[in-house]
Design a protein around this nucleic acid. Sequence first.
DNA 1: TTAATAATTGACACATGTGTCACTTTGGAG
DNA 2: CTCCAAAGTGACACATGTGTCAATTATTAA
Lengths: 188, 188
Amino acid sequence: MGRDRKFSITELYEHTQVLLLEVGYEAFTFSLLAERLNVARGTIYKYFDNKDELITAFMIYEMNQFMKKLEQIEEKGDFEQQFAYLMEIIFERTEIQELINITMQVNATNEKAVANQTYFKDMRINMYTCLQNFIRLGKQEGKLNPSLPDTMILGFIFQSVAIPNHFQLPREKWIQSIIEMVSNGIRT
Amino acid sequence: MGRDRKFSITELYEHTQVLLLEVGYEAFTFSLLAERLNVARGTIYKYFDNKDELITAFMIYEMNQFMKKLEQIEEKGDFEQQFAYLMEIIFERTEIQELINITMQVNATNEKAVANQTYFKDMRINMYTCLQNFIRLGKQEGKLNPSLPDTMILGFIFQSVAIPNHFQLPREKWIQSIIEMVSNGIRT
DNA sequence: TTAATAATTGACACATGTGTCACTTTGGAG
DNA sequence: CTCCAAAGTGACACATGTGTCAATTATTAA
């Protein structure tokens, strides 16, 4: 029994994402979020004790979505196909990298938030180790430079989506240039 | 006449930088800065009307420092020497990129801050155009991939310093890997 | 020593965010 | 229809940041 909810947790997460990208971690408030959800601020406290707990929980949700996609990489055949797939899902969610940076700003003190953050950090490690297979495959197939540390290769790939497009190149040209640079660098 | 100042603008900028990198844009306050400078908060208002004006002024100062170094690139001879020099000064000040991202968060309303921000954005454009010669030289010498847009190459170079070093590789190895990846990509 | 001047201080009034909680609303079970 | 539990509300007390300004302090020219 009990009355119907005015919003689902999924809806809450969606607005959280939009707001976080709009205003950043520090300026994100329960007041703002409540306004977007058309509920009283107090309502949100029924679900999350505070901002840090909410944001860390949101990021776990977000990372899970991404991991589901990421895990499919193993079914994609050889290195070339896996590489193409990885770039595809990264550019499908260019905001993930930014959200991760925002989440890194969280300095949790609340117990649940600390637990969430620890869990979230483990997920990042998991992501890297999950992709180690992909890197290893690339090196085995002689496609990746074996002298580069695996983690640096991964960091490089994920960082590349953050390259600014100040001069308003068409998105397709932008993506294509990045993939070319990640693959072969800037030199001839 | 008049009494001696308790701090110079340069000192103020130094503490501003440290604080901005420590706590980020939103959490940066005059209270915090005043504490670091061992003065009353009110004192800072004699020099800057508010946080946005201070941060934008600081970034102009910071960019000027960097530009002084950057402009020397033309005296460095051929493309290879210029490239080495550019990477050297970028890694000498890895924080510049982060500070630029922080400054991008400023949403100035105050008149002086808006003017500063406009000026700051012009400086970035200047930096890019100043480096266009460098890119052009590289392409002329047949060292840079001519199919890549100049601005993308520059964005790629500057973005690369932000690659995280989560797994604590020694700094030298980290820098060396980045330069290798920027130059030749991750593939063999 | 004193007057002029500039730097500094700290209290004040205001604004915004936080976490809590007694109270209200809603909807289904009986 | 009545009652209960879950969901939602909004006011309260508190905390922290902002911008201002009259008063205080330090320095030096005369």
